[in-house]
Design a binder for these strands. Structure first.
Lengths: 195, 195
DNA sequence: TTATTTAGCTAACAAATGTTAGGTAGGAGG
DNA sequence: CCTCCTACCTAACATTTGTTAGCTAAATAA
């Protein structure tokens, strides 16, 4: 993934936007709110970004980059399926916890991206979930995973992972890695004691 | 729960609002959009509801009623813990699938409810999750469930359940009950084959 | 020095927003 | 018949919105 180098000011704008878009929602955050958070005037933002929606897009697309970058090497590795899925889960949760505002925006505000970018977003997101799905399928083929519908199992995994953005706190009891570990534990082996 | 009888027109307004609030988001849906969906003028809505936010609140609070009504009898029953949790999961998913628009609004748009109702919403939602949490705690005390943090396990369950609102389609392959059944299966016993 | 770019400013814009005031037509109840 | 209520209407309102035009001052490059 090409690392686009970005000016200092631009990343300040992104940081403030991520925080406010997460806290209040994209539409409820005015350009003037962003400016105030940055100590500048609303119109000055347009020296850096062409539009408010461009900022949203930059956040969402950048977050997608993070997700891909973090699980691709694991998906392409030769790990045993169960270990591979566990590591992907931990990595995915890691992206969420390291980018808590951006990922909340990624999950919640994509509706406000207009075409054609919205389709691009949807495609990337499908492609991403497809990587998880392929691992789930492999597990089923190997007779390692139960034969629930492959799409259903994948969605259930993604559900449990993605909702973490609503409650994760950096100062919580569990570290990001522990959260991923426990989630993988529950999803793969269940809550019920077997021994 | 007191069943508030509501005029025909009022429930039409709610139905249209739920649909549009889900599709476009609360803020992106104007009062004029709602009116157009109802074949009336924007100002006429105010003969039925005092404000746009009142409509949002009615949807959210009504949805909370549905959730409570559907799991309370199960939670109060004498069922074995594992069966009880399974039935609660099925019931919860049932509320989501039967009220797909309303529940999406419930989960996604509560940020736009202003105080003091917003606190009331938060309290009810905590109380509701507390019912699940109590069952999880009981399972841990009975040495039936693994000793993950009780709050963590509960959140993981709620996560997997609540995200269904993003992908459930009435014409999908699985019925609501099957979805609940499978979710309970994965959450309680895991994806990994053990026999 | 001079020219150009960068990063900000003030002022203003058209459009859209939620809401209110005040009116009308029709039905119900006395 | 008269009164009241319901359910809608038209017209207007004050705000807020994203965005643009055009300017200035400082930094940078030639």
């Amino acid at each position: 993934m090409a690392v686009k180098s970005i000016s200092e000011r631009k990343s300040q704008i992104l940081a403030v936007s991520e925080r406010l878009f997460n806290q209040k929602g994209y539409l409820a955050t005015s350009v003037r709110d962003l400016a105030e958070g940055l100590g500048m005037e609303a119109a000055s933002l347009y020296s850096h970004y062409r539009s408010k929606e461009d900022i949203l897009w930059t956040i969402a697309d950048g977050c997608a980059d993070e997700f891909f970058d973090s699980i691709t090497p694991i998906a392409e590795s030769q790990l045993h399926t169960q270990k591979k899925l566990t590591d992907m889960i931990i990595a995915h949760v890691g992206v969420i916890t390291r980018n808590i505002d951006a990922s909340a925006v990624f999950f919640r505000e994509w509706r406000h991206i207009s075409e054609p970018r919205r389709s691009a977003y949807a495609e990337r997101r499908n492609a991403y979930e497809g990587i998880f799905r392929a691992v789930v399928r492999k597990g089923i083929e190997e007779n390692l995973f139960k034969n629930y519908d492959e799409g259903f199992s994948t969605r259930t995994i993604m559900s449990a992972l993605n909702w973490t953005h609503t409650w994760y706190r950096a100062d919580g009891e569990l570290s990001s890695e522990e959260i991923g570990q426990h989630l993988a534990g529950i999803l793969l082996n269940g809550l019920v004691r077997t021994v």
